[in-house]
Computed example of a mutant assay.
Amino acid sequence: MFIRNWVVIIMTTFSFSLAAQELPSWIFEAKASSDELAAIGSGASINQAKRAAVAEIIAQVSQSVSAESVSVVEKRQEETSQFFKQSVFSETLSIEVNDVTFDKEYVEERSGVVYVRASLSKTQLIRFLEDELTPLATLSFPVRASPVDKVLWSLKFRVTNEYGLRVERALNALGAEKAAMKAKLRDNLAAVVEVWQRYGVRVIADNSLQDVAGLINRHIPSASKTVLWLQLKPSHKTRQQNDTYQHKLDLAVELTQPRTPFRIFRQEHISVVGSGSSAGEAESHALQQLRTILDTPIQNWLFEKGSEL
């Protein structure tokens, strides 16, 4: 009886190992050439696999221009399952799936995982990156402007300049360095650093939004010489529908002078709706959504979407 069970276990393990080895060899052999970049992507669907492959291609360009979700297949002789390594980065290039060629596809029957092979011409990628840099050529820090205007410019364009430098580094890695653009972007960012060290923006908020104010403070200058106020003015409404509560949080944001007449330079209105089994749970859900929006560079939610007065 003992011997019979032992044989069954050996045969089952052997069969499982064979099944795991049926993945086509190209899944483990994506190699870039002198003319193109190549990558393997995997996911629960064809779209997820394609996005993963595009992300991996982006990550190959430069460690400084990274993809949001990168999946890499690791082949291990001693294991019967497939392993995936995922890395998360804060910035991305906006290369679209349609810009990439997908020439191979495979669906593993046992797991349902989809694999694709993607490739992108280096010439095409260089052209794309150069197009990304073109709009940034006009960015010049306002050296002779007032402190307020210098801070406004820094809040609006700091992230854009950082992105431009990452793009330039990617071009450099592809043999298409843009030295003049790199120098200009570096000069802009050096000026922004000086502004961050000299001037501050103070967040004005009531007690209910102190944690939100703390998140915003990560993304704005905080030197003692305050030249701008960022005023947060919330309003709350709660309603109940059957057993579910909904909480609507409307936040008026104004970037103003720190003294009368409190001239408004930028303003934005943010509205989120939370839900839950209680009024408190619904409000907490709404606040969490607000935190997610505001815990990003201020350029994203005030200067790209907000209005200028």
Results as ranks from 00 to 15, higher is better:
residue 1 M to A: 14
residue 4 R to Y: 08
residue 7 V to G: 00
residue 7 V to R: 15
residue 8 V to R: 14
residue 8 V to M: 12
residue 9 I to R: 06
residue 10 I to W: 13
residue 20 A to H: 14
residue 21 Q to P: 10
residue 22 E to M: 12
residue 24 P to L: 02
residue 24 P to R: 00
residue 25 S to P: 06
residue 26 W to M: 01
residue 27 I to R: 07
residue 28 F to C: 04
residue 30 A to D: 01
residue 34 S to W: 03
residue 37 L to N: 13
residue 43 G to A: 02
residue 44 A to D: 04
residue 45 S to H: 05
residue 46 I to P: 07
residue 48 Q to P: 11
residue 49 A to E: 14
residue 49 A to I: 10
residue 52 A to V: 04
residue 53 A to C: 11
residue 57 I to Q: 03
residue 57 I to N: 02
residue 58 I to H: 02
residue 58 I to D: 00
residue 58 I to R: 02
residue 61 V to G: 03
residue 61 V to K: 04
residue 62 S to N: 06
residue 65 V to S: 13
residue 65 V to F: 08
residue 66 S to G: 12
residue 67 A to M: 01
residue 67 A to L: 02
residue 67 A to Y: 00
residue 70 V to C: 00
residue 72 V to K: 09
residue 78 E to A: 10
residue 79 E to V: 08
residue 80 T to H: 07
residue 81 S to P: 05
residue 81 S to Q: 08
residue 85 K to D: 01
residue 91 E to K: 10
residue 91 E to S: 12
residue 91 E to V: 05
residue 93 L to D: 10
residue 95 I to Y: 03
residue 96 E to P: 01
residue 99 D to P: 03
residue 100 V to K: 05
residue 101 T to P: 05
residue 103 D to A: 03
residue 103 D to H: 12
residue 113 V to P: 03
residue 119 S to N: 05
residue 122 K to E: 01
residue 127 R to W: 10
residue 127 R to F: 12
residue 129 L to F: 15
residue 130 E to F: 07
residue 133 L to Q: 11
residue 133 L to K: 10
residue 134 T to W: 14
residue 137 A to S: 14
residue 140 S to Q: 13
residue 142 P to R: 09
residue 144 R to I: 07
residue 145 A to I: 11
residue 153 W to P: 03
residue 157 F to R: 15
residue 164 G to M: 09
residue 164 G to E: 04
residue 168 E to P: 01
residue 168 E to G: 00
residue 170 A to K: 00
residue 170 A to H: 02
residue 173 A to P: 13
residue 178 K to Y: 06
residue 181 M to L: 15
residue 181 M to V: 06
residue 185 L to P: 06
residue 187 D to M: 11
residue 187 D to H: 06
residue 188 N to K: 00
residue 190 A to H: 05
residue 192 V to T: 00
residue 192 V to G: 01
residue 193 V to W: 04
residue 193 V to H: 08
residue 194 E to A: 07
residue 196 W to N: 14
residue 200 G to V: 07
residue 203 V to A: 02
residue 207 N to H: 09
residue 209 L to P: 15
residue 211 D to M: 11
residue 212 V to H: 14
residue 214 G to L: 01
residue 215 L to Q: 07
residue 217 N to T: 10
residue 219 H to S: 12
residue 220 I to P: 09
residue 220 I to S: 04
residue 223 A to C: 12
residue 228 L to G: 04
residue 231 Q to F: 11
residue 232 L to Q: 08
residue 232 L to C: 09
residue 232 L to F: 13
residue 233 K to S: 07
residue 233 K to I: 09
residue 233 K to G: 02
residue 234 P to M: 03
residue 235 S to D: 11
residue 235 S to W: 05
residue 237 K to C: 00
residue 238 T to A: 11
residue 239 R to C: 02
residue 245 Y to H: 10
residue 246 Q to N: 08
residue 249 L to A: 08
residue 249 L to F: 06
residue 250 D to K: 10
residue 250 D to W: 13
residue 253 V to D: 00
residue 255 L to M: 04
residue 258 P to N: 11
residue 263 R to A: 08
residue 266 R to Y: 14
residue 267 Q to N: 12
residue 268 E to F: 07
residue 269 H to G: 10
residue 274 G to L: 14
residue 275 S to T: 15
residue 275 S to C: 11
residue 277 S to F: 13
residue 278 S to W: 04
residue 285 H to C: 09
residue 285 H to I: 02
residue 288 Q to Y: 15
residue 288 Q to M: 12
residue 291 R to A: 13
residue 291 R to N: 12
residue 291 R to W: 09
residue 297 P to G: 09
residue 299 Q to R: 15
residue 303 F to P: 01
residue 303 F to M: 01
residue 306 G to M: 15
